[in-house]
Write a protein that binds this DNA or RNA. Sequence first.
DNA 1: CACAAATTCGAGTGGTCGTTCGATTTTCAC
DNA 2: GTGAAAATCGAACGACCACTCGAATTTGTG
Lengths: 223, 223
Amino acid sequence: MTTTGSTTSDSDDRPAGPTGSARPARRGPYAKSAERRVAIVEAAFEVFSSKGYVGGSLRDVADVVGMSQTSLLHYFPSKSALLLAVLERRDAVSDRSAAPPDCGGLVETVLGQARHNESVPGLIALYAVLAGEAVTADNPGSGYVRERFDRLRVEYGDALRALEARGRLRPGVDPDRAASGLVALWDGIQVQWLLNPDRIDVVQQLQDYLDLVIVPDEGPDRT
Amino acid sequence: MTTTGSTTSDSDDRPAGPTGSARPARRGPYAKSAERRVAIVEAAFEVFSSKGYVGGSLRDVADVVGMSQTSLLHYFPSKSALLLAVLERRDAVSDRSAAPPDCGGLVETVLGQARHNESVPGLIALYAVLAGEAVTADNPGSGYVRERFDRLRVEYGDALRALEARGRLRPGVDPDRAASGLVALWDGIQVQWLLNPDRIDVVQQLQDYLDLVIVPDEGPDRT
DNA sequence: CACAAATTCGAGTGGTCGTTCGATTTTCAC
DNA sequence: GTGAAAATCGAACGACCACTCGAATTTGTG
């Protein structure tokens, strides 16, 4: 319940029209304030991606932005709030670029996302680092990581169940367990890829897995 | 080239028999020295497992052992040396408990190891944290993590190739890629398990994957 | 026992951390 | 233009970091 939203989208601290008369006369943030925030979050993304949340410092972030550490804290009340802002922004950006859940097939969505991820290794590194740090105590990002797993499990579970209904799932495959497996394989193979990009092909690996789980479409029956 | 080996097994600092006469007259470590080292390494394992390498401090480790931070540094010259000692010890312990490479089947080995891992969540957490930290810059454990991936890929790749030779691999499955996939799935699902033990069954997931990759044995031909 | 080496530790090194405070500068509604 | 709020920052806080130094204590051997 601080004055600045920081982690939540800032929409509650505008003058908000005719505010009577006996008010402390709050003024909203200045013009460049919003883009300053964005710059900070992007710098924090860069720092946390390459050094981790624990290993990266506010000083590092401030240096990237080109401002003082104190000014940075004017926009985000704490380091953990900054991390949450980074995670929120990545979600917002992803949601905008990602296709709606059931537009194309699961396979195309997954492989397309994996192909796209190759162009943003920083994002992959961020998830890899945060997933590791999430298992440590008192990590402010662990809630986010947990929820991300839950969300992905449900999302892919639904998609796989839809395929199952059309008889496209290999017999014996449980859609929910396969969803967890897909997420696990994806995260795991990305870590291997980050450490050895020449040896690992993330898209190929996902393709292999999906080929095992999903059987080819035989067309609208052919009896 | 320091006096104490620390990261390598200490075997070079014994009196080593008749040492002439004009020598500084080195004496070996005292009786309890070896077990003190072990205690330190185990405490470090505990700390790094729960707080990560970056997040855990030498002070934390020293407190667990019940000694001063300074004394701890008498046994291990630096924090990174301590981490390497922890990793070496885990390898030594694992090698002792793990079955020889090609004694039983791959499936039994993998599932048995996974079942055993459930009883040592700290070890799993250590690997998860270190894998994440390994993708960050200047991490002393990244070499170890990279080599561990290489080793496991080769080990499982060989085992899967052996199965392939006996026609036990599902058609279209590449043994080396499946080996990387197995390692990825395993690591990934363990992270999910650490964050949500009730929802995730590591053994079940590995079983699912192996069922997809390996076809059941039909017995010695039956034409 | 005596002596030297191994071990222990308190104190301190220089450094970085996240965060706070107070004051100065910049912006902008009136 | 004026004044008040927003933005910026230098300085400093207390805490912690890995690591060093020198002196005390403990150990084992001759």
